[in-house]
Design a protein around this nucleic acid. Structure first.
Length: 486
RNA sequence: GGCGGCGUAGCCAAGCGGUAAGGCGACGGCCUGCAAAGCCGUGAAUCCGGGGUUCAAAUCCCCGCGCCGCCUCCA
């Protein structure tokens, strides 16, 4: 069973063949540390997290690099506004990002290198490019000479002529050719600066990825990823620098994911419709966020709406409820599987294969989640219908639950919690948002239970109504009153 | 202008040549002190429209219509 993945270079879904199996090298463009992270950053991290998990599941030895850009105009700008040193700003947002990614259960990459710590490596590459005549210095700046690099445009599939035709490039007298881009920028007074053969300055945006990629992963890497918006110019320029410097293919598979919209509109600073990761983590369980982000194919745009989040949450609650009842299930009779258990057995036997195949087919997480719910459906139907499970049936349910949790948990980071832990943490989290206490609610539920036993339905219904206004939903079952907070 | 994407049930979303997964919601009956839950049952003559290719098309080709993204910093 092989992974198939869409490669932006060829615009085709291809079988994945690493250069030096079992090793796989993967580089993903991470954040620029100048502000809080948003849903788009979370989508990127989670999609590549799933890819990372899938590759590891295929027994590859994955070296995964996700870089951090900590030198940039926006950072300098922010530092000026706040009157703080630039690295105070970057440290703050790097820490915040890492905490949020941990909360979202994103596995740690092998390395998370920072641009500022790789200046010598960048300078070395720039020097090599100058020697080769692919770059030139001008008044302390260094530019890459695009017209000297024959295959420029191979990733974005654009022709150099076309690109100049629609010019909007601000006239920079220092550039020889409008498409040339900065490898090194002379610093202005007060800006962070490093010594270089061309005077004090700082690196351009793209060169850091080339330098860190070479350092941690080698000259040719298997996978390079990022948002679709990075194809041009960022990744195109990276190819030019990297392949220009050492005349070897830079990347075997370029993987790009689609962008997030909010209520159908592009998420942007100017529209003020940014959905931050911090906000999401406050409102939703991390697995709900993951499930939402993975519910659509990674290459498509994804529209964020409050309703879509609520729908996802309901679905996940249902899934955990199923697991909850399985965990509580006790055999009341001994004996083999009966007619009703056949569908469960069938689902259990086919789930793994279907689920895994979906992921191998260009990371079709949406389809995989479909299989997950179809499987859960069978379990739910059985447990609700059969009140007197046999020993073997209970075993079957428990084995099913184990498989479901292992696969969804290990590969998608969904459904991996203990159901009781899940519901308790969710109740607490949501009650806290509403300024309520667990004890208070449990007391009311108990009072209602007693009132019902005494057939005092007026009281019981009044309590139910009161709980309802607090957003508490009740489900009376034979065994207990199950509840959750909306 | 160049490049790319999308349009599948009320909403979300798979499927990409063999006769429509899954989620959320909705409806009818049973059950229930009532409700929620549960149980039983109901969903796309059809995949934006029109042509074409094929034994066979939501899936391929052509022409429209409507959205959207990139080409400037961006995940």
């Amino acid at each position: 069973m092989k992974l198939k993945i869409y490669n932006s270079l060829t615009r085709k879904v291809e079988p994945f063949e690493p250069l030096n199996p079992p090793k796989v090298t993967m580089y993903v463009c991470g954040i620029t540390a100048y502000d809080s992270s948003h849903l788009g950053h979370a989508r990127s991290a989670i999609i590549f997290d799933v890819l990372y998990r899938v590759l590891k599941h295929l027994n590859y030895e994955v070296v995964y690099v996700r870089n951090i850009t900590d030198i940039d105009d926006k950072i300098i700008n922010r530092a000026n506004i706040e009157g703080l040193p630039w690295n105070t700003i970057t440290e703050r947002y790097i820490r915040e990002y890492q905490e949020e990614m941990d909360a979202l259960r994103v596995l740690k990459p092998t390395y998370e290198p920072k641009a500022s710590e790789h200046i010598p490596e960048m300078i070395e590459i720039i020097e090599r490019l100058i020697e080769k005549g692919l770059a030139y210095e001008c008044e302390g700046d260094v530019y890459f000479a695009v017209e000297r690099f024959i295959s420029y445009g191979k990733l974005s599939h654009r022709k150099v002529e076309d690109m100049i035709a629609g010019v909007r490039i601000e006239p920079s007298e220092k550039k020889r050719f409008p498409l040339d881009f900065a490898l090194w920028k002379a610093s202005k007074p007060g800006e962070p600066a490093w010594d270089s053969p061309w005077g004090k300055g700082r690196p351009g945006w793209h060169i850091e990825c080339t330098a860190m990629s070479f350092k941690y992963l080698g000259e040719t890497i298997d996978i390079h990823g990022g948002g679709i918006d990075l194809i041009f110019p960022h990744h195109e320029n990276e190819i030019a620098q990297s392949e220009g410097a050492n005349e070897k293919p830079f990347v075997r598979y370029f993987i790009h994911h689609g962008l997030i919209t909010v209520d159908g509109e592009k998420m942007s600073k100017s529209l003020g419709n940014f959905v931050t990761t911090a906000y999401l983590l406050q409102r939703f369980h991390p697995e709900v966020i993951r499930a939402f982000l993975l519910s659509k194919h990674y290459r498509s745009p994804l529209d964020y709406t409050e309703k879509a989040m609520a729908d996802t949450e309901r679905a996940l609650y249902r899934l955990y409820e199923t697991l909850y009842w399985i965990k509580k299930a006790k055999a009341v009779t001994s004996g083999p599987l009966r007619e009703d258990a056949k569908a469960v057995k069938e689902a259990k036997e086919t789930f793994k294969g279907k689920f895994w195949e979906s992921l191998l087919e260009d990371l079709n997480t949406a389809q995989a989640i479909g299989h997950l719910f179809a499987f859960e459906n069978e379990l739910y139907n059985f447990i609700r219908k059969v009140k007197d499970p046999t020993t073997e049936e209970v075993t079957l349910l428990q084995e099913s639950m184990k498989i479901l949790q292992e696969f969804a948990g290990n590969l998608l980071g969904i459904a991996e919690e203990d159901p009781e832990v899940f519901f308790n943490s969710e109740r607490e989290r949501k009650l806290k948002l509403r300024g309520r206490e667990m004890e208070e609610i449990q007391k009311l539920i108990f009072q209602r239970f007693k009132a019902r036993q005494e057939r005092n339905f007026t009281l019981a219904d009044a309590i139910r109504e009161e709980l309802n206004t607090l957003g508490i939903q009740l489900k009376d079952t034979r065994e207990e009153t199950f509840w959750y907070v909306e």
